[in-house]
Design a protein around this nucleic acid. Sequence first.
DNA 1: TATTGTTATACTCTATAACTATA
DNA 2: TATAGTTATAGAGTATAACAATA
Lengths: 171, 171
Amino acid sequence: MDNASRSQRRKPPARAVIKREAAPDRVAAIDVGSLGDHLGYALKRAQLRVFDDFIRAVAPLKLSPAQFSVLILLDANSGRNQAEIAAALGILRPNFVKLLDELEARGLCRRTRSEDDRRSHVLTLTDKGRATLAKATRLVADKHDKKLATLLRASERAQLMAVLDRIARAL
Amino acid sequence: MDNASRSQRRKPPARAVIKREAAPDRVAAIDVGSLGDHLGYALKRAQLRVFDDFIRAVAPLKLSPAQFSVLILLDANSGRNQAEIAAALGILRPNFVKLLDELEARGLCRRTRSEDDRRSHVLTLTDKGRATLAKATRLVADKHDKKLATLLRASERAQLMAVLDRIARAL
DNA sequence: TATTGTTATACTCTATAACTATA
DNA sequence: TATAGTTATAGAGTATAACAATA
């Protein structure tokens, strides 16, 4: 979704503007109009950029944000089944199957039939999964978070997280 | 993407927690672990909620956020062609075709062959398109923005928009 | 040669119904 | 009868290649 024009924005507060070409003969500009005042638009643009930067940061490990989030949840929650982990991430159970197939095929996690309830698959991180999660966490801290830190002061980031959380919980 | 469990979150700062069932026998909770500290995760959850609320607000008009954004840009930029509008929205030209087909079929906008450059289609909003945009803008203000205003103070929202904009431009 | 709109295509995400095996 | 994991499938959204008309 990242087009060339994406990286050529100006900064006016309400009426942001996009150049169609780089420098010389002032070709004309597109006015985003009132779109610049819409929270959803601002959220989506920021989210796409942040995901894109995240993906670049962990590129050596070939981990998508979704895969990374699964590894974190498996690490923090031992002995849970697919339905529980999927629900916690807002992933539908049918869609979680392929995601897990991939992680298991790469030896990052394991499905084990539960003794208590033989319908359930208990999910556990393998040693390789834990190691991969550790590497990913390191890459995210060293590259992604470091870059964000140059953009946002700690207080701004904390305020941002608090507000986003409030929106996600209460809207 | 909205599961039942989505609406049952607690509020601890670092280690947010999700209940699997409603009230009585405290069934167990899933720990999102360090995921709660990741900006991308917070942005995505907030964005999905905001889009969902936006869609509900303009439901009578059957307008998606993408369609709404096109109407705004056509209103603010007369006489532009498809490539220009698509680029400004980060939509690829091939994908913009179907989007416009739909809007044109509904009588909201019009494609006209340009006299200057007969390859181009000049895009214009129809009266019906302008009326629909006006109705949508009203619905968003009266429902969506009003609900957001109960969650965020004006200063918080302004700060949020500024920070999101900074991320989208500079990351 | 390059660009505009377009078609075709493919890959990812998301969403629903229905099957099986268990409970 | 209900639930966990699964399959199949369908719909959006997004990405690239290539073609006809035009520049």
